[in-house]
């Protein structure tokens, strides 16, 4: 049959294997993080080593990022600083996300009064500027690694808690949860089988979004001098120290860690 069939529409992108690319991207970024952290931990001591004969070198082959005024290699310092920051970020984001999960779920399932209290707390936390609270907590806990981690963890949970509360509330009223309940499913079963699979992606995304946020705030607090102690290599410290040398033309101190 001689039939002219016209193609009305074709997909624009053909055959992109999205799932596989996502998997590869995830593995590569996880590897990068792990390698950075491990390298930084290994380089930690080397990064503290001073060598006044080689101070204030501009970037060259043996010191790709240059050296600072105490002759410390900036590449090693940056690596060590990054690993400290990643560890703080991971710990703070993790704790923060768990607080969010617990409070968000409690607000959604705990009845009207609990919900009102937690919602009020969320609004309160969101109303206060992060950095002020962060400085206060960090200072009260005696600065250092613990102070910064707790400070960041305690200030970053509200937005994620709100998201989780909304998600759980929506699930609680969904028809399939009502149906499961009428079929005799226990609360544990409903929480594990019907709620966890929905909250988990929100939780993971929230955690990942918190992570850079936590690092940034850690660096900010340290920069302001309320965070880590100055001998520790951390991005905030390095930048803070670099500030005073910038006017002397030692740009490499700030550019590479930044």
């Amino acid at each position: 049959m001689s039939e002219l069939v016209s193609v009305l529409h074709l997909p624009r992108v053909r055959g992109a294997e999205n799932r596989r690319r996502t998997l590869v991207a995830c593995v590569v970024s996880a590897m990068l993080l792990i390698v950075l952290t491990v390298a930084g931990l290994v380089a930690h001591d080397a990064a503290m080593a001073t060598d006044f004969t080689r101070s204030n070198l501009a970037p060259c082959l043996s010191h790709p990022f240059g050296t600072d005024w105490m002759g410390r290699d900036m590449l090693l310092r940056t690596l060590a600083g990054l690993s400290t920051s990643i560890l703080i970020g991971l710990a703070a984001a993790g704790v923060s996300a768990v607080i969010a999960l617990v409070l968000g779920t409690a607000a959604a399932l705990g009845g009207r009064k609990v919900d009102a209290a937690i919602s009020w707390l969320i609004d309160l936390m969101m109303g206060i500027p992060h950095i002020i609270l962060l400085i206060l907590i960090s200072y009260a806990l005696g600065k250092g690694f613990i102070g910064v981690t707790v400070g960041v963890a305690l200030t970053h949970w509200p937005s994620l808690a709100r998201v989780i509360r909304a998600e759980v509330l929506q699930l609680k009223d969904s028809t399939f949860v009502a149906a499961a309940r009428r079929l005799g499913a226990s609360n544990v079963h409903i929480a594990l089988r019907h709620m966890l699979p929905y909250v988990l992606p929100q939780f993971v995304v929230g955690l990942i979004l918190l992570f850079p946020h936590a690092i940034l705030h850690e660096a900010a607090v340290t920069f302001l001098g309320f965070g880590l102690s100055p001998e520790q290599p951390a991005i905030g410290i390095i930048l803070s120290e670099a500030m005073s040398y910038l006017s002397a033309g030692m740009w490499w101190l700030a550019v590479f860690p930044g």
């Binding site: 039939e3 016209s6 009305l8």
Partner: peptide
């Protein structure tokens, strides 16, 4: 949708109208 000329981005539509 096909008759109205509305197509999903990942659809392949062929035919004569």
């Amino acid at each position: 949708d096909a008759v109205m000329g509305l197509f999903e981005p990942n659809a392949t539509v062929t035919g004569t109208v």
